[in-house]
Write a protein that binds this DNA or RNA. Structure first.
Lengths: 340, 340
DNA sequence: TTGTAAGCGTTATCAA
DNA sequence: TTGATAACGCTTACAA
């Protein structure tokens, strides 16, 4: 049979209260008794009943993590980090997949969040307004998105763009396209900021905004044709999945990568599966997940500096084609280009 | 404030016991009172306290899912299916990532499993012996692995091999290599069975066992050289990740795919990211996850037939090279080949 | 420093 | 069909 705290107390010759304290607040109990209790607990294979503990203390020992799609490698890695850190701290993690439906996300936050000591939400697509109305009574942390109403952990999206643009510029690219993520995405907006900053600092550089695209393979396929039409010699994609599909479509239109067009992905989730291997902006997803847990459980909010990202150069970026199209196109066909 | 059953009972003018029954076992309560309770509950925004319910009833309303690595797309998709079905049935899901450590898996099953109404375990690498010692007191289901001591849900690994071999044979391949998964893998053993069956049914066919390899990219890279040395014109890989790395290495050794060697993956997790797109044996992972939940919660075990898999033909398989090496090698260099 | 005892919110047993 | 009432196992004032 499963033994209770009573059994432990009985075996150790103390009251249930002392047994409880010995296990939960050891510093309040005399060393001798504490040892006796610990030994009895161990001998009986005692495991505290979390339901009873919760009912009495109000704390569940659970964390709740809501993501749009666990099968998306970005979120899967995030789950891994959250899970690892939570385990270290003795928490179990409810993982809720919202199946890419922002309304379901809100519902899950309300439902499962009520059964946990805190909730972590990764939701690039929920509206700011909807985010504002999420439960603020319990600890709550937003991942890779800021919002005035909540705590958050983010990565340095802006700096990632800066690194990538500098890399491409050094390779001689002078006309670089940006395949944006869905409109309204917080990180997409930050990346556009980074693009602007980067473009201003470099010589003779056009950054061309190719528009907003779905952050799926379909987005990359659609973007490819826009890329070709824009005359850029390099592209930054919103994520690796998009970049891979983009390369696929480019190739099938006869464009050689990286000889004719260089491609940069984002996140480093599936970049290594591409052919050629994708140069990408690596995001420390597991660290981000761990940081989310710490932030959730931290009493003092802290400064919340963005986590650093790192450009990983692989085979999909190369020097700009000689006599590249950059100058040829310089004064035509400029879709909202930023100019240095 | 959050309202309790007492509040509902008070508002509805009934006793807490009746309120409880009205909500949990409606058929035991007179329609009039039931309606009153339901209305009061709704009006007060009543949410049952799961801890209290658990303490009293013994049921947690939680399920536990332990996987070796959530960042692996195979398991991520499985999580998605489990999660979806569990939600439909009103359960929350603890997801535990064992970080590819079978010992940790066992610990997680014991720890988190004790806080749930049932546990689902996907563990290709745990030893049969270790599996035998896992908690049998609560409902427990094994995923894609059979074991006499436990219930399980599996896919038809054997038939998948049959489909793939038939496909390759029809394309004229007469010497086909098998890049196996880790030794001890249950599904790998089933696939070898399928290979044998398939080979026996087809004319002039050699299936060459290339050995056991890690189910990671490294495994695929290592396998590539063995593939080249074996003189096969087609390869079946243990999963898509392995197949993709295999193609990478083959290509860098100057082998053209599919012109010189055809490649077949398994699972259809990342097959579409490859270039060329990978022909693969699609496994219904989400369905498998859903089935695991149903099996876990089913009172009557049922027959447990394997879920069907489906060969998806893409660009990585093509007719065998003319004057292919198959016949040339027919009587030499036969590594444990099965012969029809 | 320790023990007594009162809950925590729900379910389930028993009478009525 | 309904209502008291006693658990469920633990934590935490409060008292000693």
């Amino acid at each position: 049979m499963v033994s209770t705290l009573r059994d432990v107390a009985l075996a150790a010759g103390v009251s249930p209260a002392t047994a409880s304290r010995a296990l939960s607040h050891p510093e309040l109990v005399a060393p001798a008794r504490r040892a006796a209790v610990e030994q009895a607990a161990h001998a009986l294979g005692y495991r505290p009943n979390r339901a009873a503990r919760e009912l009495s203390s109000g704390r569940t020992g659970h964390l709740c993590l809501v993501v749009p799609d666990v099968a998306n490698p970005f979120f899967a890695s995030l789950v891994k980090g959250v899970q690892a850190r939570a385990r270290e701290l003795g928490y179990g993690v409810f993982v809720a997949d919202a199946d890419d439906d922002p309304r379901l996300e809100a519902e899950l936050v309300a439902q499962l969040g009520a059964q946990a000591d805190g909730t972590i939400l990764a939701s690039p697509r929920m509206s700011d307004d909807a985010v504002a109305h999420l439960s603020a009574d319990r600890p709550f942390v937003l991942v890779n998105r800021r919002h005035e109403a909540h705590a958050s952990v983010v990565v340095d999206n802006t700096d990632g763009m800066r690194q990538a643009v500098r890399h491409l510029h050094a390779l001689g690219h002078r006309r670089i396209g940006y395949v944006g993520g869905p409109a309204g995405s917080w990180s997409d907006a930050r990346r556009r900021d980074g693009l602007e900053v980067a473009a201003h600092g470099l010589h003779r550089l056009d950054v061309v905004d190719l528009g907003h695209f779905p952050s799926s393979r379909g987005g990359g396929t659609a973007a490819a044709d826009v890329v070709v039409a824009s005359g850029v010699t390099a592209v930054l994609a919103h994520n690796d999945l998009v970049a891979l599909a983009l390369m696929d479509r480019l190739r099938s239109r006869g464009v050689r990568i990286p000889e004719e067009i260089s491609v940069v992905g984002h996140d480093d989730t599936v970049a290594v599966l591409g052919s050629p291997r994708l140069t990408t902006i690596a995001v420390p997803l597991a660290r981000l997940g761990r940081a989310a847990v710490d932030r959730l459980l931290d009493d003092e909010p802290g400064p919340d500096t963005p986590l650093p990202v790192e450009l990983v150069v692989r085979a999909s970026t190369a020097p700009a084609p000689a006599g590249g199209t950059a100058d040829a196109y310089d004064d035509e066909l400029e879709l909202e280009g930023h100019r240095a």
